[in-house]
């Protein structure tokens, strides 16, 4: 990615292990995700020219390992399977891959269709410098 200008939201695939799985590839209407080999076992790769950051793959990945990041806007879209589901405009704690607090964020958008089957795609807005660290969010409990 270095030296390349990225415009708009793009999928970030954090799938690191060869398990036989490919819904990310089959769900993408833009055919932006392919497998890095002939086997269903191969790791997915993103063609960021084709990816429009729609976020369908975020909900489709059974491993919840795909995010959509917009480095210029400072947004991260995450798969979210907890209740309560946050509301748009709500302030949340943005957390990293270890669940540690990174910064405050605002829920910008919640995308959900029946096809997602209880996986909400929550887009949070955070300071740009944290887009590569933030991979989760926690609802701020009142009175804590």
């Amino acid at each position: 990615m270095e030296g390349k200008v990225i415009i708009g939201p793009k999928a970030v695939i954090e799938c690191t292990e060869d398990i036989p799985c490919n819904p990310c590839m089959t769900c993408c209407a833009k055919h932006a995700i392919s497998l890095d080999g002939d086997s269903i076992n191969s790791l997915p790769v993103l063609d960021d020219e084709k990816c429009n950051g729609c976020g369908i793959c975020v909900a489709s990945c059974p491993g919840m390992a795909i995010f959509v990041v917009d480095v210029n806007e400072g947004t991260v879209a995450l798969p979210y399977e907890f209740i309560p589901i946050p509301e748009e405009g709500q302030e949340i704690d943005a957390t990293d891959r270890q669940g540690k607090f990174v910064c405050k964020g605002i829920v910008q958008k919640i995308m959900y269709t029946d096809k997602f089957d209880h996986t909400n795609v929550v887009t949070i807005k955070i300071p740009k410098e944290y887009v590569n660290d933030v991979r989760g969010m926690k609802i701020i409990k009142e009175g804590v």
């Binding site: 036989p20 799985c21 990945c61």
Partner: peptide, 18 residues
Amino acid sequence: IHKFFGSEHHGAGIRGFR
């Protein structure tokens, strides 16, 4: 209640209880 792995013809992405 989690989504299963696999490919389309295994029913990947479908929650087990379904």
